[in-house]
């Protein structure tokens, strides 16, 4: 008699658990970003008109993208500190392109062109002209978005060979 009750209890419990897990999965999926949100993930920017040491802010996936054309002096500085690898080289010019969100907690750092560096007002983090971190708390330089070079244009969201190389040697991480 008791074994029959046990069986019914376990059967009921088992099917309830199964339904519960199914419901949880549905709830998880409901909270996922919508396909339309994920699909709108590509932006093309033109670097032709960028001016040296003037910060331009573009937008990609709702996030600000910093574009900073490097002056000769800035390129020299980057060579010395071994940060040339962070820059995108097109012809003779070097560009810093990065997601403009502090790698600490995602505030937007401000650019000071006289100091050629970024300061994040939230928690005092600092970055140099190649967006490499120079003062904590940020754990690393600004992340570089996936890009593909197309003449003087960059397609953000697509992974070109130059970007894959940056990923491979640890210059940036996946955003």
């Amino acid at each position: 008699m008791s074994s029959r009750r046990d069986f019914m209890g376990m059967a009921l419990g088992g099917f309830t658990a199964l339904g519960g897990i199914g419901a949880l999965m549905a709830m998880k999926k409901t909270w996922d970003p919508l396909p339309s949100v994920k699909a709108a993930g590509f932006t093309t920017i033109d670097l032709k008109d960028a001016q040296e040491n003037v910060l331009v802010t573009e937008k990609w996936r709702g996030k600000p993208i910093f574009v900073l054309k490097q002056s000769k002096e800035m390129v020299e500085k980057a060579k010395k500190s071994d940060e040339l690898k962070r820059l995108i080289n097109i012809g003779d010019e070097y560009y810093m392109v990065a997601v403009g969100l502090c790698t600490h907690l995602g505030c937007i750092p401000g650019y000071d062109s006289s100091k050629q560096g970024f300061l994040c007002a939230c928690h005092g983090g600092q970055y140099d002209g190649t967006a490499m971190v120079t003062k904590a708390p940020p754990p690393r330089g600004l992340d570089i978005p996936p890009f593909k070079i197309d003449g003087t244009k960059l397609v953000l969201g697509e992974e070109g060979p130059e970007y894959k190389k940056m990923l491979a040697d640890g210059t940036t991480m996946k955003v």
């Binding site: 996922d32 970003p33 949100v37 709702g62 996030k63």
Partner: peptide, 13 residues
């Protein structure tokens, strides 16, 4: 983080 937000950044979702 994107799951919590339902987007890459805080938006409608």
């Amino acid at each position: 983080v994107e799951w919590i937000r339902g987007d890459y950044v805080p938006a409608q979702a």
